[in-house]
Nucleic acid binder design. Sequence first.
DNA 1: CTTTAAGTAAACTTGAGAGTGTACTTTTGG
DNA 2: CCAAAAGTACACTCTCAAGTTTACTTAAAG
Lengths: 202, 202
Amino acid sequence: MNRSEQKRQSILNAAKQEFIENGFAGSNMNTVCDKAEVSKRTLYRHFESKELLFEAVLTIEQQQLEALRDYRFEPKVDLRQQLISITQQEAQRLLAPHGMALARMVVMEFFRQPQMAKALSERLYHTHAVTPWLQQAIAAGAIKSVDANDAAEIYMALFNGLFLWPQILQLAQPMAATELGSKIEVVVDTFLNSYGNCESTQ
Amino acid sequence: MNRSEQKRQSILNAAKQEFIENGFAGSNMNTVCDKAEVSKRTLYRHFESKELLFEAVLTIEQQQLEALRDYRFEPKVDLRQQLISITQQEAQRLLAPHGMALARMVVMEFFRQPQMAKALSERLYHTHAVTPWLQQAIAAGAIKSVDANDAAEIYMALFNGLFLWPQILQLAQPMAATELGSKIEVVVDTFLNSYGNCESTQ
DNA sequence: CTTTAAGTAAACTTGAGAGTGTACTTTTGG
DNA sequence: CCAAAAGTACACTCTCAAGTTTACTTAAAG
């Protein structure tokens, strides 16, 4: 079953590109076929509908992202440094080649078909990957003893408010490296000013 | 020209309702005609296309909102109380009958036609109505002397992260009054912990 | 009272694009 | 080798909704 699998991959790649460029509604199945060098009938044998193809693309993307996010609290490392490092990684993920385009695509689908994209997108961009780290930090006494989910909500509000939304909505220019660095510090320091325990690191 | 104006209003009302319920793409011009009790030809005499009708609806909405937001810093009133009051007003605006639906509609349009909705939405939800207030508060020494726009960005990140996005994306249930109150305090306190001058109000 | 701008109803055109049917060829596993 | 599973080409159907045409009626200003 080798050729079949190749075709399937080819379709998924073409579809990903097409969806990123044009969103769900704007994407054209004929174009996907052409890009994938596959006949329409073949595409529809692998994926029964545009909807299912889209879900398949998102699912794969989600799994790839998931594998990269596993933050562990290190009691011996400076708290602020750890959170800066996490924030840097998250920011890089977002600013990576297709990171923002993908994020935009996913958010769009919320508006189109909430029930469909919901589970996927929650995991993609709304699972608070920092939550486990925060739980450990709270247990270790490095972060004030609040609910880790509440703290994560604040951290994500700051992060998304400075990195995700301005870029997704294209209200802001692509960020320069120095600007990125200073915004990361703002996010981390604003968060730690309210939730950090005793370490004034400003 | 009285009947004509009545028809126009009727069309705008029907369109607003339709757009709120179904978004731009999902809205049907025939349905708008029916709701407005107007013939299709009449609708198209008033608004040359769906696009122009949509813009007209948004423009009117924007003008109505604009009139309500004019926050002034009062040196004699407690800083935290002022910011809580502002935050309450903004939250109420968002949670008002059609506030969220409208916000969703506007955000959607960013994805469809950035250049069109950009100016409108910036003013609707991304003009930082708090910026003038912050400028005055900084001048009065109540807020640390940072750039008012930077501070506004943080405040809005917190506000939108807790109120706008979870609701728009329908990740959260509609909020209970007590929850609303405590979230308002979280926003304000997190902000003031980093930007307030000397008034520890926790 | 009549002209003209506005409104009505309903059938119609149009375009786009998702998905299918059909007749054919290629791959591949037993 | 040879069935059957997979792929190809492409013309076709179906649907949906934006916008138009047509033949007509109504409102109102000079």
